[in-house]
C-alpha cells in the first residue's frame, strides 16, 4: 500500500516525465531519496471534537489530521514532504468509529476502519457498494487500521471507498470552520478539489459520513480491475446503485460512477439520466455503456492502464455492477452482454 500524493519541494534529482502521464502528482513522484524518520514534533490524540479543533486551529497549517495513517505516514516519511509540527489523531474521539442507523440514514464515523465496514451488517444491507469496496482495500492488516475518513480525505480519483460511496448519495460531516464542533453536512462530491487534494480548510476535518437507508427495491455494487504489477490503484473501478420499480418494470433511479476518469471522482450523469425510467434491456444497457464511454475522459497513465484498455473495461465493469445492483434491488433478469466468443462450445 503505497501512494504518494504530495508534490515534492525542490527535488534534487532530474525528474523523468513521461508524455503519457496524466496525474504526475501521484504517479510520477518518486524522487524523495531518503526516508525521513522524525516525521513530526508532537502527536496528539484528543478525546473530544473541541480539543481536536482547538489543536488544529492552534497549529494551523503546521498541523495534519491523522486517522489510520497508512497513507499519510508514508507520505510524511518521504524527504520532500512538508513536515508538520503537530499530528492530530482523531481515532480516539468518542463515537468516531460508530456505524449506526439515525432516522432514515446510515451514519459511519470517519474513524471506522475498512475492516469493520466490510463486515458490518448495516453497511452490507444499505451500502453494499461501500461494503464491497472496503473489503478490497489493501490487505487485512491495512484494513484493520485504514479508515473511510482517511480514504475520502486523500481525494484520489479512483480510491475504492470513494467510488463505492459516490453512488450512495453520500454526505460528509465536515467539522470545524463555520460549522464548529457540530459540523455541517455536505454532499460528497464537494469534497474533491483535484487529484490528491480536498476542499477542506486547514482547520476542518471529516467527522462522519452518511447515506440513505436502502429500501427493498434498491441495490448497489462495486467492482474494479487491478493489475498484478506494482501499481496500487485500480486500472478502472466502477460502482452502481439502482432503484427498481417492480410495478412498471423499469429502473427508477440510477447512480453510476466510473474512475479514474478525470482528476476528481465523478458520476456518469448522462448514462444515469438515460437509464432512469427505462427497462433494463440489453439494448438499454448497451446504450448506457456507450454513454459512459463517450462522456468519460479516459487517459493513459504510465504503467497503470492505457486509455484504450479503460474504455474496453467500461462494459465489463458496468455489466457486473449494474447486474448485481439490479439483482439486489429485486430484479434478477438482467441480460448478460453477449461477446464474440459466446458461440463457442464449452469444453
Amino acid at each position: 500500500m503505497y501512494l504518494y500524493v504530495k508534490a515534492r519541494r525542490g527535488s534534487p534529482a532530474p525528474t523523468y516525465r513521461s508524455p503519457w502521464l496524466l496525474y504526475p502528482l501521484f504517479e510520477d513522484d518518486l524522487f524523495g531519496h531518503d526516508i525521513v524518520m522524525d516525521t513530526w514534533d508532537s502527536y496528539f490524540r484528543p478525546s473530544s471534537r473541541e480539543e481536536a479543533l482547538f489543536l488544529i486551529d492552534r497549529y494551523g497549517t503546521r498541523a495534519r489530521i491523522i486517522a489510520g495513517g497508512t497513507d499519510l505516514i508514508l507520505d510524511l516519511r518521504s524527504a520532500d514532504a512538508e513536515r508538520p509540527q503537530a499530528v492530530v489523531d482523531i481515532t480516539a474521539l468518542p463515537g468516531v468509529d460508530r456505524i449506526v442507523e439515525e432516522g432514515d440514514k446510515i451514519v459511519i464515523g470517519a474513524g471506522a476502519t475498512h475492516g469493520t465496514i466490510a463486515v458490518d451488517p448495516l453497511v452490507r444491507r444499505h451500502g453494499t457498494s461501500l461494503s464491497e469496496a472496503s473489503s478490497v482495500v489493501g490487505g487485512p492488516q491495512v484494513r484493520n487500521v485504514a479508515t473511510i475518513g482517511g480514504n475520502l480525505a486523500h481525494a484520489l480519483p479512483a480510491a475504492d471507498g470513494t467510488t463505492g460511496l459516490l453512488v450512495l448519495e453520500t454526505e460528509v460531516l465536515v467539522l470545524g470552520g463555520d460549522g464548529g464542533a457540530n459540523g455541517t453536512w455536505r454532499p460528497l462530491h464537494t469534497l474533491f478539489a483535484g487529484a490528491g487534494t480536498n476542499t477542506l480548510d486547514h482547520n476542518q476535518f471529516i467527522g462522519a459520513i452518511r447515506f440513505p437507508k436502502s429500501g427493498d427495491n434498491h441495490g448497489s455494487a462495486f467492482d474494479r480491475i487491478m493489475r498484478p504489477q506494482g501499481v496500487a490503484l485500480p486500472m478502472l473501478a466502477a460502482a452502481a446503485a439502482i432503484s427498481w420499480d417492480k410495478a412498471s418494470g423499469t429502473v427508477d433511479a440510477t447512480a453510476i460512477a466510473v474512475g479514474p476518469a478525470g482528476p476528481v471522482p465523478v458520476r456518469a450523469v448522462e448514462a444515469e439520466t438515460f437509464l432512469s425510467g427505462k427497462e433494463p434491456s440489453e439494448t438499454n444497457l448497451r446504450e448506457t455503456i456507450r454513454l459512459v464511454q463517450d462522456n468519460s475522459t479516459f487517459r493513459t497513465s504510465a504503467f497503470r492502464a492505457t486509455r484504450e484498455y479503460r474504455y474496453e473495461m467500461v462494459p465489463v465493469l458496468l455489466t457486473r455492477v449494474i447486474g448485481r445492483a439490479l439483482a439486489r434491488a429485486g430484479y434478477g433478469g438482467f441480460p448478460r452482454l453477449g461477446t464474440e466468443e459466446d458461440g463457442d462450445a464449452e469444453d
Partner: peptide
Amino acid sequence: LTEHYIEHDGIPWTRRLGQ
C-alpha cells in the same frame, strides 16, 4: 507475470516495494 525493475534514462521508477 509481475516483476520488472523499471528504469528510465538510468533513473528508477521502481522505488518502493509497492512498485
